[in-house]
Amino acid sequence: MNMSLFAAASIGTGIMMIVAAVAALIVKKLISAIIIVGFVSLSASLLFLLMDAPDVAITEASIGAAISTVIFLWGRGKIGGEQ
């Protein structure tokens, strides 16, 4: 397979993840931050797939994107999203 294609995919995903991670910490609304962290987890599962780790990718996709997002949404419902 073409290696430069893989390099472009990993670099693009990595830049997207770094930008999203910074955005998750400085964005105003808490709910946006929670959704952005879910997106970072989903992108991480793409990187795991590129690193030949399909087991880890499945786990990260189902846990990072679904279950932990629900946990944080529950906390937001109990605390409230001020800040």
């Binding site: 087991d55 499945i58 786990t59 189902s62």
Partner: peptide, 12 residues
């Protein structure tokens, strides 16, 4: 690919 940990998360 799979096993107890990812499958358990899906069921949950």
């Amino acid at each position: 690919p799979g096993g107890g940990f990812p499958g358990g998360a899906v069921v949950a």
